[in-house]
Simulated assay, not measured.
Amino acid sequence: MFGDMMGMMGKLKETQQKVEATKKRLNTVSLEETSPEGLVKVVITANRAVKEIQIDEILLNDKEQLEDYLILTINKAIEKATQVNETELSAVAKEGMPNIPGMDNLFK
């Protein structure tokens, strides 16, 4: 019984280390989102840190339009980054989980 418990604890610790390594790696994964007309471009990491914003000069004269483009493009970039982040982390977590009946759907 203790062998099984110790094995499970070791497996959980190993999984935790893999999750942390994956989080670090996701800091290096860059995703790009561009507004429909290409007037705003946002570069974001898979951990949702904005790294770069490029704005076409045409938008610099219209504050309201610039704000709308920024909100739209940043939100789309965050959505894309969140999807990559969740997919990567859930794959690592699922891979390391012990086979416990009834918990197989937890990380889908």
Rank of each mutant, 00 (worst) to 15 (best):
residue 75 N to M: 09
residue 36 P to M: 05
residue 53 I to H: 07
residue 65 Q to M: 12
residue 84 V to R: 04
residue 43 V to N: 02
residue 50 V to H: 00
residue 46 A to N: 10
residue 60 L to D: 14
residue 45 T to G: 00
residue 77 A to T: 13
residue 60 L to S: 13
residue 79 E to N: 08
residue 37 E to M: 11
residue 51 K to D: 10
residue 51 K to T: 08
residue 64 E to H: 05
residue 49 A to P: 05
residue 45 T to F: 01
residue 49 A to M: 03
residue 48 R to E: 06
residue 94 K to A: 07
residue 79 E to K: 04
residue 56 D to C: 02
residue 44 I to K: 01
residue 63 K to S: 11
residue 63 K to P: 14
residue 59 L to Y: 01
residue 78 I to C: 12
residue 44 I to Q: 01
residue 68 D to M: 13
residue 94 K to Q: 10
residue 80 K to F: 01
residue 63 K to E: 11
residue 72 L to Y: 13
residue 52 E to P: 03
residue 67 E to K: 07
residue 78 I to L: 13
residue 90 S to V: 06
residue 58 I to P: 13
residue 82 T to I: 08
residue 57 E to S: 09
residue 37 E to S: 09
residue 88 E to P: 13
residue 86 E to K: 06
residue 61 N to I: 14
residue 35 S to T: 07
residue 77 A to N: 08
residue 93 A to R: 13
residue 75 N to P: 06
residue 90 S to K: 11
residue 83 Q to A: 00
residue 49 A to E: 05
residue 59 L to W: 14
residue 74 I to H: 02
residue 47 N to T: 13
residue 35 S to P: 11
residue 89 L to V: 07
residue 85 N to E: 15
residue 42 V to A: 02
residue 41 K to H: 03
residue 59 L to T: 13
residue 89 L to N: 10
residue 67 E to Q: 15
residue 70 L to E: 08
residue 34 T to K: 15
residue 43 V to F: 02
residue 55 I to V: 09
residue 85 N to P: 06
residue 95 E to R: 02
residue 32 E to M: 05
residue 64 E to I: 14
residue 52 E to M: 08
residue 84 V to G: 04
residue 67 E to H: 12
residue 54 Q to D: 11
residue 83 Q to Y: 02
residue 54 Q to H: 11
residue 47 N to S: 10
residue 74 I to A: 06
residue 92 V to A: 11
residue 72 L to W: 06
residue 45 T to H: 02
residue 74 I to Q: 04
residue 95 E to Q: 15
residue 35 S to Y: 11
residue 69 Y to W: 11
residue 65 Q to I: 12
residue 42 V to R: 02
residue 69 Y to P: 15
residue 55 I to T: 09
residue 86 E to G: 02
residue 56 D to I: 12
residue 35 S to M: 15
residue 47 N to C: 03
residue 74 I to C: 11
residue 82 T to P: 08
residue 34 T to N: 10
residue 58 I to F: 14
residue 87 T to P: 00
residue 41 K to E: 09
residue 62 D to S: 14
residue 90 S to G: 09
residue 83 Q to M: 01
residue 74 I to M: 12
residue 70 L to K: 12
residue 86 E to L: 04
residue 44 I to G: 01
residue 41 K to D: 04
residue 91 A to M: 02
residue 33 E to P: 08
residue 39 L to K: 04
residue 51 K to W: 05
residue 71 I to A: 11
residue 33 E to T: 15
residue 89 L to K: 04
residue 73 T to Y: 10
residue 73 T to Q: 04
residue 68 D to Y: 09
residue 87 T to R: 00
residue 75 N to D: 10
residue 53 I to K: 12
residue 74 I to G: 10
residue 91 A to W: 05
residue 85 N to A: 08
